[in-house]
Amino acid sequence: MLEIRNLHVNVDGKEILRGIDLTIRAGETHAIMGPNGSGKSTLAQVLAGHEAYEITEGVILYEGQNLAELEPEERACAGMFLAFQYPVEIPGVSNTYFLKTALNAIRKARGEEPLDAVDFLALVKEKMKLVHLDEKLLHRPVNEGFSGGEKKRNEIFHMAVLDPKLAILDETDSGLDVDALRIVAEGVNALRDETRAVMVITHYQRLLNYLVPDFVHILAKGRIVKSGGRELALEVEENGYVGLEEPTEVLQPVGY
């Protein structure tokens, strides 16, 4: 479904990703772990199509298409979804209104009729239960005045409604209490099936207790330095990232 080959990415002229290779097949869940500044969020933003991130080398293929040729909205319409690390507040646009506009844009791209108000509401009610989202948050402006946990759950709610093929979660677990964490994980687990794939970017192993990945990759200084199964995450939990960075790089000052 997703194939990343030798991906190099610059931000403001500085190389953040330095040769990533990663293949994700339908039905798989991959966890990307790594310390601060390792390039995890950059990877997420590049996949979603943020203009500030420049691919200098390598290629990303999504279902055989070169992702660089697709606008962010075209990627969404093709079934990609990014849950933001820091969901954006949009004053003046109600959550449902936004979601209905988004869903119908995606449906149109798929050649489907737009959902009318009744069908949309039924869908929203069903998906809301999945993430235990308070109904009042539907009518409030997107993310405005939401608590941190509400914002993250709202991302998963959007994901559930938009029904993507490839979901990328960028630190959706950060700052969540254990109950919220479980709700988020359940929301993602409900989406998982053999036709879809999930990429979970996380700083902590904790989420992976509830959202069990098939593969774990350790990202350090812009490269995947180690890949393995579930047990690799537990190893990180135990020992931190020490020893997982390339020896020549370890001595570099932080923030280099």
Partner: peptide
């Protein structure tokens, strides 16, 4: 905000219009 809207499938012109509408909506 524009990028956020676009990642949810809303095209650039529509995303701009939606944000402008929201600004007026207050």
């Amino acid at each position: 905000a524009l990028f956020y809207l676009r990642t949810r499938g809303i095209g650039k012109p529509a995303a701009k219009n939606l944000l402008t509408y929201a600004f007026a909506n207050e």
